[in-house]
Design a protein around this nucleic acid. Structure first.
Lengths: 169, 169
DNA sequence: CTCCGTGCAAACAATTTGCATGGAT
DNA sequence: ATCCATGCAAATTGTTTGCACGGAG
């Protein structure tokens, strides 16, 4: 859906991230992901059906953050006739197992991603809806300090930057 | 609804915040808020009705982050029979005018607050649903740097810490 | 052969909207 | 006297659930 480019960030201290990987997908990595997802469902003690297989492979391959209907569409290319209920039920099982993440950006529908990669936050391009991942250790640390200073411990957090491409200077 | 206490944070650099103000409410401040809200609606070129007046005063007085139905309940104590549609319509007008903020914490209903105070982020106690405001200049700065480094400018952002009271050590 | 997973349709919850009437200006 | 704002009910959107059947184990 969206074009790809290696995005880098060289902020004063930490990190960088790539969002999409264009053409050359590391199949081994995707296969490992698919296996992780399958294992998670097995662990949950459920049956492996062909609609679930399709969904798992789609999720493992997805480099973006698709919503439920989009996942249904993609999965149906492999195995026609997968209902939206099945998509939601499978997603919810996978989320419970902790192998995928569900995001609720602004007021829109939920979007999902496999959680195999390390923790990161999101920048959402308000014009294109494209999602760019990033991570900054200093922000993480500050968050923990703030919570701690107020007598809390963080269960989880959301940092979402709604952004727009800068006009070229 | 929730008990009050002056919360402070003495994080390495910046800020602190109070959530609720128990009994002694600064009436002048609340009245000023109410006027701001009224002015905003007038500016929007709409008519002032008694249901809107009730809502505005409720919003101005609210020191927490109530949801639409809660606002309706409170407003109905002043003026009975305010419908939920009216609440939503008024909230949406006020949000357009920029005098209130709408938050969508996790999967729950939207919650609102007047935006007269300076910008801040939120900590949500996952056990009590209580919301604590905080603000940290360093985090803000880092966010801007990150967006900038990736060629974006921030339109708005959400930083939400879902937290739990620490077990006493 | 036993149940779990599925598709379908209906149920849901939060929010929005169409419409006729009442009220602010 | 205008025409906007209201209340009500119906529509919408995204997601969940009840039920009877089919397929995984």
């Amino acid at each position: 859906m969206q074009k790809s480019s290696q995005l880098q960030m060289i902020c004063s201290c930490i990190l960088h991230f790539s969002t999409d990987i264009g053409i050359n997908i590391d199949m081994t990595q995707n296969e490992r992901r698919a296996e992780n997802l399958t294992a998670a469902l097995r662990r949950a003690g459920v049956r492996m059906t062909r609609q679930r297989e399709a969904l798992l492979s789609i999720l493992a391959d997805a480099e973006d953050h698709p919503e439920a209907t989009e996942l249904q569409r993609r999965a149906n290319e492999k195995v026609p006739g997968i209902s939206l209920s099945t998509v939601y039920r499978t997603l919810s099982a996978l989320e419970t197992e902790g192998v995928i993440l569900r995001h609720q950006f602004d007021g829109a529908s939920a979007r999902y991603e496999h959680s195999e990669t390390q923790h990161h936050d999101h920048m959402i391009d308000v014009d294109t809806n494209e999602v760019v991942e990033f991570s900054n250790e200093r922000i993480e640390r500050l968050q923990a300090e703030i919570a701690d200073a107020m007598g809390y411990e963080i269960v989880h957090h959301r940092l979402e930057l709604y952004v727009r491409k800068k006009a070229r200077s």
